[in-house]
Every structure is written in structure tokens, then in C-alpha cells.
């Protein structure tokens, strides 16, 4: 059902592009730091698009000047969770924003099985439709 190639989950920035290289990630983080946003590393193994709050990897990183520290943390997270989704978010704390300004995936499982269409018969003859990730059939931590 997914229209993108290889069932790749598409959320956040750059998700229709091939995976970013470390240099490209560094460049993006540099942009976030230049704007004074706090960069965080988050992970999850539930690819559902409505799964908004991912687990945070380590502490949020405030007051950093250079992307090298964050890249170190990303690589640490990739080592710890090689088969999870890992994303980088940049949080803008200025009043009025107070929300993530950037978010992009930096690590994904080797095989992404995609989503199943779930039909629900409702009262009368109406049908409800939703999607469910195949991976979520298994318990958390054993999905990929």
C-alpha cells in the first residue's frame, strides 16, 4: 500500500531521500546549532505515524557548540539500537515556538515490513479503515 520505494517509513525531513551520510547529518546539526536549537537523539521500534513521542537517548544536549558531540551520541545510539528507528530532533525554546523545528531519521531497521490495512465493520454498512505496522505484532524490543 505504501507508495514509496521499499516500504520505507517516511516521517520528518529528508525521509524520501536516501539515508544521510555522517557528513550530511553533521551539516544539518550545524544548521540547528547555528540557530540555537537544542538537539536530541530519540529512538523507537514502533513505526506508526501517530507514534509522536519517541524514547529519548541520554540527556537532552543544551549549550553545545559543535556537531561532533551529537554525532558521537548518534553513533552511540546506533550501536545500542542497530535495528531501531533513530531520529534527531532540534528543539527551539524561543517563546512562541517551544517545539521541535527539525526532525529527521538517521537510522532504520534493515527490513521494514510496512503497514497492513485494517478494516473495521461498523454499524449499518459503514467501514472504518486504519493501518497497523506489521512489526508491531511482536512485543516491544523484539520487533525488528
Amino acid at each position: 500500500m505504501m507508495t514509496n520505494h521499499g516500504n520505507r517509513v517516511t516521517q520528518g525531513q529528508f525521509s524520501f531521500l536516501p539515508d544521510l551520510s555522517d557528513e550530511q547529518i553533521t551539516a544539518q546539526i550545524k544548521y540547528a546549532l547555528k540557530n540555537g536549537w537544542a538537539v536530541n537523539v530519540e529512538y523507537t521500534d514502533d513505526p506508526h505515524p501517530r507514534n509522536t513521542y519517541w524514547e529519548m537517548f541520554g540527556m537532552p544536549m543544551f549549550d553545545l557548540k559543535d556537531p561532533a558531540g551529537i554525532l558521537m551520541e548518534i553513533n552511540h545510539c546506533r550501536e545500542t539500537f542497530p535495528n531501531h528507528y533513530v531520529r534527531v530532533t532540534a528543539f527551539d525554546s524561543t517563546r512562541g515556538w517551544e517545539s521541535p523545528r527539525m526532525s529527521f531519521i538517521v537510522n532504520r531497521p534493515d527490513k521494514e515490513p510496512g503497514f497492513r490495512l485494517v478494516r473495521e465493520e461498523r454499524g449499518g454498512r459503514s467501514m472504518g479503515y486504519t493501518i497497523a505496522p506489521y512489526a508491531a505484532d511482536r512485543p516491544e524490543g523484539e520487533r525488528y
Binding site: G58, M59, M61, L64, K65, D66, P67, A68, G69, M72
Partner: peptide, 14 residues
């Protein structure tokens, strides 16, 4: 470990 690493991350690039 987290404390030391946090400081190190802040100092990176400097």
C-alpha cells in the same frame, strides 16, 4: 559517565 560525557560534548570543537 553521563556527567563527564556531557562536559566533553560541550567542549567539542573547542
Amino acid at each position: 559517565a553521563p556527567k563527564t560525557k556531557e562536559v566533553i560534548k560541550k567542549a567539542m570543537g573547542g
